[in-house]
């Protein structure tokens, strides 16, 4: 896949409020559409940046529900197609694992 590379020196304009900005998009972390849109104007152009800035997609479902919706919102603000935005880097654990399990994790011998 070829993803869009941004020239960040070019301004994208000002954030303007929309009537449904209070709509929750990431249910796990309770992040609204307005917060995601604002983040773009704060300079967060990639899904990885949005994720670290807002925690959208970092909750229990790990973005399985909201991932696509977050991508659509960011792409629209940037005026590009969602397919041009790279998804967040996938990392283990792919599903939430309790800290207890990791704490108990003894290194296995090969």
């Amino acid at each position: 896949m070829e993803y869009k590379v941004f020239d960040r020196t070019k301004p994208i304009g000002e954030f303007t409020a929309q009537p449904d900005d209070d709509l929750i998009i990431c249910r796990c972390e309770e992040i609204t559409k307005g917060e995601i849109r604002k983040a773009v104007y704060d300079g967060m152009y990639t899904i990885n940046e949005i994720k670290r800035y807002l925690r959208a997609g970092m909750g229990l479902c790990q973005g399985l529900t909201c991932g696509r919706n977050v991508k659509d919102i960011v792409a629209r603000e940037l005026g590009i197609s969602p397919a041009e935005l790279e998804e967040a880097t996938p990392r283990p654990p792919a599903r939430p694992v309790t800290a207890k399990v990791y704490a108990d994790c003894r290194g296995e011998e090969d």
């Binding site: 694992v97 207890k100 990791y102």
Partner: peptide
């Protein structure tokens, strides 16, 4: 048995109950 990661050399980690197996 939830597979939580795939690593190079075709290794996987699996979360089963309260532990992780590779």
């Amino acid at each position: 048995s939830t597979v939580i990661g795939i690593y190079p050399e075709k290794c996987i980690s699996v979360n089963r109950g309260d532990h992780i197996e590779n």
